[in-house]
Design a protein around this nucleic acid. Structure first.
Length: 183
DNA sequence: TGCACGATGAAC
DNA sequence: TTCATCGTGCAC
């Protein structure tokens, strides 16, 4: 298991999204070390992407997205669920990858097939917003044995308000994986 | 200072 | 299809 370097995140967001599939999300949480295999993600390209939070510019909430790559962007949605993103590209760009589903690897209880459920199972909340993913307690790693299963591309979920951007195939998941939120 | 609205999940 | 529940962004 090898921690991903900063340079992994400082690249094209859709490419980073695809390459995050199969990687391990690791959180050394109070309840123990929790590990999940990333099986579903969505790319949010930047301020020009109408589905992205960064399309409203640099605000209190989105400042993490405009920060340096390799940090966690965690926010509260619908007043009750947390969603976790990984900041990508160079500082100031405003892009991120939403983690939508994981497959349990170690110490994972409950369902994981959705961004809110993923955070609950991984013990991720807003206290981890802006946390550096090159830290030792919260990071993403390349597993010692990594396969390369086929990747499916689909429109993103829940962004119908985004016009033409809602139709872009920026959601990626591992084909036939039973832990994907919506096959 | 007030208010409409979610990158969701669960129940009906 | 409906609803719970509250932080954020923007209107006033």
């Amino acid at each position: 298991m090898q921690k991903l370097p900063r340079s992994f995140y400082d690249r094209d967001t859709a490419l980073v999204a695809r390459e995050l599939l199969g990687k391990w999300l690791v959180h050394v949480a109070p309840g123990g070390e929790r590990i999940g295999r990333i099986v579903e993600v969505e790319a949010y390209l930047g301020p020009h992407d109408r589905a992205s939070h960064s399309s409203r510019g640099l605000t209190g909430r989105t400042k993490v997205m405009f920060g340096p790559p390799g940090h966690a962007y965690v926010y509260l949605i619908y007043g009750m669920h947390c969603c976790m993103n990984v900041v990508t590209e160079r500082e100031g760009h405003g892009a991120a990858v939403l983690l939508r589903a994981i497959e349990p690897v170690r110490n994972i209880a409950g369902r994981t097939h959705g961004p809110g459920l993923l955070c609950k199972a991984m013990e991720i909340d807003r206290r981890l917003n802006s946390h550096d993913l090159l830290s030792d307690d919260f990071f993403i790693a390349r597993p010692s044995v990594e396969d390369a299963p086929p990747i499916v591309k689909r429109p993103r979920i829940g962004v119908d308000y985004a016009g033409v951007w809602a139709r872009r195939h920026l959601r990626f998941y591992l084909k036939n994986n039973p832990f994907v939120s919506r096959p």
